[in-house]
Design a protein around this nucleic acid. Structure first.
Length: 105
DNA sequence: CCACTGACGAGTG
DNA sequence: GCACTCGCCAGTG
């Protein structure tokens, strides 16, 4: 299994209605400290690959997709809200409430 | 081989 | 809470 697949597998473990940080996904994938690799892998995510990528956000509770394509974060936000994840006035997610840890579930 | 870039994180001011 | 810097490492030219 290459590192990308390991990352995808880690993302698939995130329960519905929860979110995980890039660093968290990296750790689950066995790539501690390689948060950027997670972002790189998700950027190169082939369409058709069933991965809940929208549940992956940065440590600040923001949607990083917005950095790449302004406006693209709306789609991610909609998907999360549809799962019951709430956003604050700043458009950020409370990791204290929705952050997922591998020890749970 | 080198320089630069990037869905990031942690530390600093 | 925000802006900046540095460390991280695969891709790209």
């Amino acid at each position: 299994m290459n590192e990308y697949e390991a990352i995808y597998a880690a993302v698939k473990r995130i329960p519905r209605g929860r979110v995980c940080t890039y660093g968290g996904v990296a750790a689950l994938a066995g790539l501690p400290g390689r948060a950027r690799m997670v972002g790189y892998a998700l950027f190169a995510l082939p369409e058709g690959t069933r991965v809940p990528w929208h549940r992956v956000i940065n440590a600040q509770g923001k949607l990083s997709l917005e950095r790449v394509v302004p406006g693209g974060g709306l789609q991610q936000r909609f998907r999360l809200e549809r799962e019951g994840v709430e956003f604050d006035a700043g458009g950020r997610v409370s990791l204290a409430r929705y952050g997922w840890k591998s020890t749970e579930y």
